[in-house]
Computed example of a mutant assay.
Amino acid sequence: MHFTENEKFNQVTEDTLVIGVDIAKRIHYACMVDDRGKLLKKSFPVRQSHEGFESFYRQIRQAMNEHGKKAGSCWY
């Protein structure tokens, strides 16, 4: 998919969970915000391993459930 920046921003709705990840060599850090930029989950470590990814995925699913976010398309 090729979207312009404005088209990407228009896809963000109140159902969107925005996840930012600071990439590092072994331990990454992620945080979660809503469509307005309100912090939903403070920065937390994500280990670069299968277990780390599984934990990260569980935290995403938990945040989606807690904040009423729906699964949808992903873009970056």
Rank of each mutant, 00 (worst) to 15 (best):
K41G: 08
F3P: 00
G37S: 09
T13H: 02
Y57P: 00
E5K: 08
G20C: 10
A71Q: 04
L17W: 02
G37Y: 08
V33N: 04
W75M: 03
S49A: 13
F9S: 06
F53L: 09
E5M: 07
K8I: 10
I23P: 01
L39H: 05
F3N: 13
N6I: 09
R58I: 09
W75K: 00
A24L: 04
S43C: 05
V18L: 14
L40E: 12
D15E: 13
Y57A: 14
Y57M: 06
G52I: 11
Y76E: 03
S43Q: 12
K8A: 15
N6D: 15
G68C: 09
D15G: 01
H67M: 02
K70T: 07
N6F: 06
D22M: 06
E51W: 01
R47E: 15
I27V: 14
I19C: 13
P45D: 15
I19G: 08
S55N: 10
Y29N: 11
M64K: 01
K42H: 06
D22A: 13
G72T: 05
A24M: 07
K70P: 00
S55T: 10
I27K: 05
K25A: 14
L40W: 01
N10Q: 12
R58S: 14
V21A: 12
H28C: 07
L17C: 04
R61L: 13
P45Y: 07
Y29C: 08
P45F: 07
P45E: 14
D15P: 00
Q62W: 02
N65Q: 12
F3R: 07
G72A: 10
F53C: 09
T4Y: 12
E51N: 12
F3H: 10
Y29F: 11
D35L: 00
G52M: 13
D35T: 03
A71Y: 02
H67L: 01
H28S: 13
V21C: 07
R61T: 08
L40F: 03
K38P: 00
Y29E: 15
K70Y: 03
K42Y: 05
Q11G: 05
L17P: 00
H67D: 07
N10I: 03
Q62H: 04
C31H: 05
H67F: 07
S49K: 04
S49T: 15
G52H: 06
T16A: 11
C74N: 11
K42G: 14
S55W: 03
R47W: 12
H2M: 08
I27L: 11
E54L: 04
G72P: 01
G20L: 10
